[in-house]
């Protein structure tokens, strides 16, 4: 098999490739944040100034003592109540789950297939064609 000769890439071409990659990287990481789609689907109960420790489910003396030591003297504190009552929503959206499975499996399938094609070429060039 003839040896493959890659084209030479000039400085400008290299810079463009780096910029493209940077845009993709920053896009992938920041886009979900900008669109407010990034997970952590957590919700807290509304703030209740009159709630007691027991109302918040903090009903052992050890827990109350620990909160006191952390600097929360009373349960009448919005930040604290948000922490205590926050819960994830684990109802499963089956459509979304299906999309996820298709995307992940499809991705690995795609990568391994393309890799396989490229790999055959590498081996053929490195070890010579099979007789």
């Amino acid at each position: 098999m003839a040896k493959y000769k890659p084209p030479h890439q000039g400085k400008l071409g290299q810079i463009i490739d780096v910029v493209v990659l940077l845009i993709l990287i920053i896009g992938a990481l920041r886009l979900p944040l900008w669109l407010d789609l990034a997970g952590g689907a957590k919700t807290s109960a509304a703030f209740n100034p009159a709630a007691t420790w027991a109302d918040l489910g903090q009903n052992t003396p050890e827990k109350i003592a620990a909160y006191n030591a952390l600097g929360f003297d009373t349960p009448n504190n919005e930040a604290l109540q948000n922490i205590i009552t926050a819960r994830y929503d684990y109802t499963i959206n089956y459509l979304q789950l299906l999309v996820m499975i298709v995307v992940v499996v499809g991705y690995f399938f795609l990568v391994i297939r393309f890799s396989g094609e490229e790999y055959k070429e590498v081996i053929a060039e490195k070890f010579g064609d099979r007789k």
Binding site: P32, G39, G40, V104
Partner: peptide
């Protein structure tokens, strides 16, 4: 909890 991020 973090499904959209995974897909992105």
């Amino acid at each position: 909890g973090y499904g959209t991020q995974l897909i992105a």
